[in-house]
């Protein structure tokens, strides 16, 4: 690996001996540095501010490194039952929801990738059509009402069981990455579609499985709309609705008090801001932790799917 990197670097040096190319390379480096800073700094600031002394944060003294450790915000968050109920709900919705998503999406993607399957073109059209044309909010709401989905956990799981975009990516992956010879060989060995899908196609598609699973996990984890429109009881609300109360409606303290930002700079406001920083970290951590593990599949999985799709 390291030899590979050095060799690329060496070729670059040989290539860029002209002054204009050196200036160009410098400009690229500076631009990249600026973009990286702008992208990562807000997140870094939230992270260090979440456990720094709130007064120092407000004075602008916490900029690049944490300053004066203070865990009051995290203490408040750990005591706040709203956060933990939301967390628990979101974990349930995400785990069950993603399981259903995968069970629905992957077999369908395989079936739609079979070249001899005559119905696949019309079916793909019928699936893709729903990406651009929908019944709209109220017919959807009334349907959920008739199906008794309103105010239940199933409204987070069943309506979004299939994401057409993910279906198309997975189908393209099967078309592009699994050699047709494998299927022919399996057929000669007497395998039917179920066996081939389960024993050959699925084990060969770990890259796309991981990527699509990540998509679904993130989709469930960040779902805010479903809770807003279709859930009435607060104890069924997902994390994002609780986050909205804390972050956007300024109800940082569990009691409902504690406005921040807009008014005043008092003690309450300072600590409310710290709670906000902390809750952003607590809520985003799971997704940010799994992301690097799946990232290595992005090149293989997403790109093949995306380009062909």
């Amino acid at each position: 690996m390291s030899t590979h990197v050095t060799s690329t670097r060496r070729t670059t040096r040989i290539r860029s001996h002209r002054p204009s190319d050196i200036i160009f390379a410098a400009a690229v480096a500076i631009l990249v540095a600026v973009i990286l800073f702008v992208t990562i700094y807000p997140l870094w600031f939230v992270f260090i501010a979440s456990f720094s002394q709130p007064a120092l944060v407000a004075q602008g003294k916490v900029l690049f490194l944490p300053h004066g450790t203070n865990l009051f915000g995290y203490g408040q968050i750990f005591q706040d039952t709203r956060v933990w109920t939301g967390y628990k709900n979101t974990i349930i919705y995400t785990v069950v929801g993603t399981a259903v998503n995968m069970i629905v999406t992957m077999p369908a993607a395989y079936a739609l990738s079979r070249p001899e399957f005559k119905a696949r073109r019309p079916l793909i059209f019928l699936f893709a059509f729903t990406m651009f044309f929908s019944g709209g909010l109220i017919p959807t709401y009334l349907l959920y009402k008739n199906l008794n989905l309103l105010n239940t956990m199933w409204v987070f799981i069943l309506p979004c069981a299939l994401n057409v975009y993910n279906l198309i990516i997975a189908r393209s992956f099967y078309e592009a990455s699994i050699p047709e010879e494998l299927h022919e060989a399996a057929v000669i060995d007497g395998a039917n579609h179920f066996q081939y899908f389960w024993r050959v196609a699925l084990p060969l598609s770990k890259a796309i499985l991981s990527v699509i699973m990540l998509y679904y996990v993130v989709q469930h984890w960040n779902d805010f709309f479903t809770g807003l429109v279709f859930i009435r009881d607060y104890d069924k609300q997902p994390l994002q609705m609780v986050l909205r109360d804390i972050l956007v409606r300024n109800q940082a303290f569990a009691g409902g008090a504690g406005t921040s930002g807009g008014t005043g700079q008092g003690y309450g406001a300072l600590y409310a801001d710290q709670i906000k920083y902390g809750v952003i970290i607590v809520a985003s951590l799971p997704v940010i932790i799994i992301y690097p593990f799946i990232q290595k599949y992005f090149d293989k999985g997403v790109m093949i799917g995306a380009v062909k799709g």
């Binding site: 973009i35 990286l36 992208t39 990562i40 807000p42 997140l43 939230v46 993130v218 984890w221 960040n222 805010f224 994002q240 986050l243 909205r244 804390i246 972050l247 956007v248 921040s260 930002g261 801001d273 906000k276 920083y277 952003i280 809520a283 985003s284 997704v287 940010i288 992301y291 990232q295 992005f298």
Partner: peptide, 18 residues
Amino acid sequence: TYLPQFISVVVVVGMLQV
């Protein structure tokens, strides 16, 4: 640069507010 994609809209708006 891919990272912010995975942050929820609520958190992004919360960060804007702060």
